[in-house]
Amino acid sequence: MSTIAEKQAVLIEEFEFFDEWMDKYNHIIEMGKAMPVIDAVDKNDDLLVQGCQSKVWLKAEKKGDCVRFFADADAIIAKGIVAMLIDVFDNQPATEVAAADLSFLEEIGLKDHLSPTRANGLMSMIKQMKFYALAFSSAN
């Protein structure tokens, strides 16, 4: 089982392979397409992440000390981005998710690349995931 840091290192390595942003987007899109999504019946408005331009649903479950994350989005790039975050955070200890430093977003250049509105959306997703993790870890 890889740690959050190891998961990030893998993503950084994957993205190093691409010079052009069109190719990076392609990779993000493929991750979005590959992500298992929330059941349609569960996709209610309570799960919507506030502050995203497109609709992003995010659901978390406590599993022992760890957190499971499930998500979906109506736009595929947003879905790919949340898929990356889930790749890093899913099944990790709640305390570590809450405290994690997501340096890979800078390393792969995503943070600088996104427009301010989209960067806010990304921050909202991270905040929501950490919020769940914090709630689960303090419930222990």
Binding site: W21, M22, Y25, I29, Q53, S54, D74, A75, I76, I77, A78
Partner: peptide, 11 residues
């Protein structure tokens, strides 16, 4: 989705 089209067109 139109947002995705917008991003990839801008690229």
């Amino acid at each position: 989705h139109p947002y995705d089209l917008g991003v990839l067109l801008d690229q």
